[in-house]
Design a protein around this nucleic acid. Structure first.
Lengths: 161, 161
DNA sequence: CGTAATACCAAACAACCGTTTGTTTTTTGA
DNA sequence: TCAAAAAACAAACGGTTGTTTGGTATTACG
């Protein structure tokens, strides 16, 4: 709280005029982060027409936000609802609401029902994990997103070259 | 440190006879966790002969350790090297050493070079993410591991039912 | 203009944190 | 058996933490 106060040019106590507690501030930042990512994803998805193009656009936007807007994204990805018992329900709701976008995008692909859930969890898990191994020098976020999506599109055992 | 002392029946200061600092203790737990997971993975991999069976066995063992032996696994998965600057090199080395197993297992599949890296990162990212959404009621760890691996084996756009 | 809401300051509170120091108990081995 | 090494205790250290309280500028508005 003292670090945040210094960064905003306030004294620590002044924060409590705006937020009831540290946890409440955390939730506000989390919500803002989710909203920023969701906003961008929604925008780029709307610009595409085929189910696959829409999913790809979502993955690229998701990862670009995760790796660029890193302060908010760090909170959204690394803070798990169970880390903040006092707000876990609220955080879970925000996360579920966001991930529903990918549920719908994947459902549009026409996969068998049983595979949809794992496709979503695999995709989001792999994308989010990129935040921990990404280094600015290597592949650009958009390329990484497409690389991960390609792993789900082209079978592992095919195409021995 | 006080919680750990209580759990081990010691006073807080006594821990410092065994470990130089809190970070040193963290590294020791991390190393022990990696060793436990790696040991089990190595054992089950050795029992399989084909490249694909070996990779599948590794995924199942990895996830079973992650979801069952949850105290050590929690440390190994959630603590990132950059979280502990004083020990980040040591943690990175441990993690790289473990993940090299998957690098080799995937290389044995005969994928084109360019795809191997993303296949590994996608697979490990998706498996590790399961730790945050897994709930004891649902699919068993082994089934989840196979479900995730199936996402990389069967193309996304195929098999409309 | 003046008053009331808004925003922030100044200072402290109590609890908690990782760690150190000197001492005592327990275990080991010659 | 008895000295030495190992292990744990007892108590505190200085610093950090989230938060509260009462006062003070600043702004908005009837």
């Amino acid at each position: 709280m003292r670090d945040i106060a210094r960064a905003t040019g306030m004294l620590p106590g002044s924060i409590y005029y705006h937020f009831a507690s540290k946890d409440a501030l955390l939730v506000a930042v989390y919500a803002e982060g989710v909203q920023r990512i969701a906003g961008r994803v929604d925008r780029v998805v709307a610009a595409q027409t085929t189910p696959l193009k829409r999913l790809e656009a979502a993955c690229v936007a998701h990862l670009e936000m995760l790796l660029a807007d890193s302060d908010y994204a760090q909170v959204v990805v690394r803070v798990l609802p169970q880390d903040v018992p006092a707000a876990s329900a609220r955080l879970t709701a925000l996360r579920d609401d966001y991930e529903a976008r990918f549920r719908r995008l994947i459902a549009a692909l026409g996969l068998p029902r049983a595979r949809r859930r794992y496709a979503r969890l695999t995709l989001l898990g792999a994308l989010n994990a990129a935040q921990s191994w990404y280094r600015p020098g290597g592949d650009a976020p958009a390329r990484i997103a497409r690389g991960i999506l390609a792993c789900l599109r082209e079978p592992l055992e095919a195409a021995k070259r």
